[in-house]
Design a binder for these strands. Structure first.
Lengths: 210, 210
DNA sequence: CGTGAATGGATAGCAGCACTATCCGCTATC
DNA sequence: GATAGCGGATAGTGCTGCTATCCATTCACG
């Protein structure tokens, strides 16, 4: 398959495919002559993955490159991949050193130990969580922290289902990629569902009879 | 308070504040003379909110402007605000008409009616959900749909807690803003927690003794 | 064998976004 | 009366994710 056909099958324009190859997201085709290369089904699948991570997961091209490099490297352990994978939406990593940030970090450390989670507060996700809670506090919604356990229950529930899925459905060599897909696309799924549930709950509370 | 002090208190540079005023995110200060204006505490709070929606929620300036306009307009009903609020990360709204998208849309419609959710499949969140599921299917993870009910349970749980919080803690005139904050920042909280839980679940499964 | 479309590879350009810098005429403050 | 800060306007910047153009092939077709 040449690049034109790959483009037609995936809907990705030819120049964009070239761009992805340049950026290291996609391996180039196998050269059959000086200016002819042939692409296979793995390229097609990889392109689908790239589009999913970019369009659905909102990841930047550089982030995708990093994650895919980790996926392709069998040496890299699962959690390292995850660490680089799953932060499509965290803000600029400014060192906030105000009172709210400190309190939020303490709350997160406490939450992690309270739930016995085998993760360290240095995890980037923990930093994101702290920032979100600090922002809440700054807006006068410190009481939102009361919901943390409900949120954590839901998160655990989903994470268990996710890992069970990976464990049950995927062969070992598919697992790393499966975890990336599950983490990134699963986040989009959960967010959408939450917004739908939000609308439903809101309708039940306020528009009692609509 | 003049603009310099507002800048110092919030950490937002003066030119950026001016930019937000130009873009309609922030009302200008009250003019006390031709080139002096005074800002109050509402401006300070609004700036915090803008930074939270941008940095934590990952929303674009134009989206924030839209949401804040809705918050400021007491006419606009709750669900309209939510509709425009809560989509910080959905991709380009391309009309995907392939088999996977159609199947995913059907699955979403089915899910909504199965759970009795009082929302319509035309909701943008439903479209996002369909796209995410379609992307999964394209990557050979159609079986992920088996987890949908687990995900939906978690989403419902969180949404109920969220709405109860708004209902219990906030006066009526704070509710709209509270829902926006809860929807956007709550999403960041839930995502972070899911990633932490993911790491924990993964550690339990694979690094059995670390 | 000739011709036109497609290809790989390289470089340059573009649109959108979120600021940021500069300038002007004025004003508050010391 | 000097100097720092201000409101308002306009122009410029850095980054991102493509997109356009060019060139020297090369393949597919008549």
């Amino acid at each position: 398959m040449r690049i034109g056909e790959l483009s037609r099958k995936t809907g990705v324009p030819v120049p964009t495919i070239k761009y992805y190859v340049r950026e290291g997201l996609l391996p180039g085709g196998e050269l059959t002559s000086r200016n002819q290369a042939s692409y296979g089904e793995p390229h097609e699948r990889r392109l689908q993955l790239i589009r999913a991570l970019a369009d659905v997961g909102g990841m930047k091209v550089a982030e995708i490159a990093e994650v895919l490099a980790a996926v392709d490297d069998p040496e890299r352990p699962l959690h390292k991949v995850l660490g680089s994978a799953a932060r499509p939406m965290s803000g600029p990593d400014g060192e906030n050193d105000d009172a709210e940030s400190a309190a939020a970090r303490a709350a997160v450390t406490d939450l992690i130990s309270r739930r016995g989670w085998r993760t360290h507060p240095s995890n980037p996700a923990a930093a994101d969580l702290s920032e979100a809670l600090a922002a809440m506090a700054r807006l006068g919604h410190g009481a939102f922290a009361d919901l943390l356990d409900t949120y954590a229950d839901a998160a655990e529930q989903v994470a268990r289902a996710d890992l069970a899925y990976v464990d049950r459905h995927l062969a070992i060599e598919e697992k790393v990629e499966g975890v990336v897909i599950g983490t990134v696309l699963g986040e989009a799924v959960l967010s959408s569902l939450r917004r739908l549930a939000h609308v439903d709950a809101s309708a039940r509370l306020y528009d009692a009879g609509e």
